[in-house]
């Protein structure tokens, strides 16, 4: 009896406020799609950063056997143990250097696998193709040039890389887009919440006769409020479902098809379906709970129980 009664009340309520319900669904869908999108963007950036990105400023890559045959910079052969010790002691003497870490070829292979997973690029790779390197953290990240001039061209050194220089601009762009998305999301969220509050107000007003009688015959406040809260939750859930659809479509059209970024930018390891799917429960849960909470607080103001 109860469930049937509540369900029919919700149906009536949602249909009575059809335009309002539609507005709630759309605004919840857009704000949650932006929210999910920004989470995915963050995932994407962190997969692109790799293992060392946030930890060091400069990397000195050492020649391995393969480089010795192909790379003119390594014409004098693979790096020797004496050269390595020399580089390390020189590094430690430099005042700008904060810490130095040594990455063996095996470790490099492991980190590479972690970052690129099973992409076609990494499957053909073997540990001895990887380079040994020194990963250096500077006291002042701007002083990259000091290290670069000291070590580039030295025997056994293949290259000195400013870790951040390469990708920083891209990351800054992505980061900026992310903040913009979050700002729009916050705005949409406020709009959604105000719409929900207003919907509840209208709904409570149009059903004041019923709720008045319910109050008089002693229906519990939970029972009186439930249809309103469920109304908002159902609308929110539909919005959340749409947002999930947007995210899946977004991944499909931007990465695999349509824009086909995965083919055009095949050096980048794009986030997979699992990353997208992992976000969906969160999006749905927020879609369900946030409007329900908003309705609950709106009811305290607009519905006397």
């Amino acid at each position: 009896m109860r469930a049937q009664f509540v369900l029919s009340e919700i149906g009536v309520g949602l249909r009575r406020n059809l335009t309002m319900t539609f507005a709630v669904v759309v605004s919840v869908a857009l704000s949650l799609a932006l929210f999910g999108g920004s989470l995915l963007m963050r995932d994407q950036v962190s997969t692109m950063k790799g293992y060392w990105y946030d930890k060091v400023n400069v990397s000195i890559f050492l020649c391995n056997k393969a480089d010795a045959e192909q790379d003119p910079k390594c014409a004098k052969g693979a790096v020797t143990n004496e050269q390595k010790t020399q580089i390390l002691t020189d590094l430690k003497k430099m005042p700008v250097v904060d810490t130095v870490q040594h990455e063996t070829a095996d470790q490099a292979y492991k980190h590479y696998k972690e970052q690129f997973g099973d992409s076609p690029l990494s499957s053909s790779l073997t540990p001895d193709q990887m380079q040994e390197s020194y990963r250096i953290k500077l006291k002042d990240p701007e002083k990259y040039q000091v290290v670069a001039t000291a070590f580039s061209g030295r025997d056994g050194v293949q290259s000195v890389e400013d870790q951040k220089g390469v990708l920083d601009n891209l990351f800054e762009l992505l980061n900026g887009m992310n903040w913009a998305a979050l700002a729009v999301m916050a705005l949409m969220l406020v709009v959604a919440l105000m719409l929900i509050v207003n919907t509840v107000r209208v709904s409570a007003f149009s059903r004041r006769r019923e709720t008045g009688i319910m109050r008089l015959v002693g229906a519990s406040s939970f029972y009186i409020q439930m249809p309103f809260i469920l109304e908002a939750a159902v609308a929110g859930l539909i919005g959340g479902g749409l947002a999930c659809g947007f995210l899946l479509l977004g991944r499909y059209f931007i990465i695999d098809h349509g824009l086909q970024l995965s083919e055009k930018l095949n050096l980048i390891n794009f986030i997979g379906w699992d990353a997208v799917l992992a976000k969906l429960p969160l999006v749905l849960a927020i879609g369900l709970l946030m409007p329900a909470l908003a309705a609950f607080f709106a009811l305290r103001k607009y519905l006397k129980v």
Partner: peptide, 8 residues
């Protein structure tokens, strides 16, 4: 209605 809403 008076009975439904109190869960009879």
């Amino acid at each position: 209605f008076a009975q439904e809403v109190i869960g009879k």
